[in-house]
Amino acid sequence: MARQPDGPPPPPTVQKLRIRYAKRGRLRFASHRDLARALERALRRARVPMAFSAGFSPHPKISYLGAAPTGAASEAEYVEIGLSVRCDPEAVRAALDAALPEDVAVLDCVEAQEGTGSLADRIDTSVWRVELPGLDPDELTRAVEAFLAADVVTVAKRTKNGLKDIDARPSVTSASASAGVGCAILHMVVRQGTPAVRPDDVLAALAAVADLRPPLPPRAVREAQGRLDDTGTVADPLEPDRTAGAPDQEAHATV
């Protein structure tokens, strides 16, 4: 017979919270795994009553949604956690925010509402802002125009299995250029899919169509994530829970 862990099974998940957080400043260099570790430890320090998986190696119930790449900052990263005791979402947000490093900010926390569907289904698009220090904005404008005018822009993408050619064009639903302080700024709305098209891939595409060569490394920020509607707007993925959950009459334990 298979060996069983000693003791009773862990308490069940009684509440799911959906969280939006930002990674900024120096922590843009944190990888998804780095942030996951930091988040798990912060949850322990903040004494959030996490639900755990069963088995010999219990893990806290945390689901991560597609993370921004290492080196990119983000104002809109999402994670869902399962609790074993009901808590006030705002209290969890504040406690977690205090327990995380300064450059990680917990911006929003809502209770997942029954019947509203999964969080992953509400996210299919990213809004990016990419600062290109030392680059002439007009040069960027011309490159963006050339890119948008093309039907196919093939770039080599580094994957687990070596370099692979992908078409960067169809995922980019809109793009524009503006001028910043000492830099040009690329704004774009990019559909998430497989293979994923990331800011670096779009920059490689701009190099391919218009020989755009920024003199310094880019600084990318993911400004929003959500579902792209017909008007070209990206919807707040936490909105359905917020709408379904209000007014909230249930009593909450405090963290």
């Binding site: 120096r26 922590l27 260099f29 944190a30 990888s31 780095d34 290492t70 080196g71 490394p217 600084r219």
Partner: peptide, 12 residues
């Protein structure tokens, strides 16, 4: 931005 595992150099 150009190296492996940059997080190890940022402190904090």
């Amino acid at each position: 931005a150009q190296i492996q595992k940059p997080i190890q150099y940022v402190g904090g």
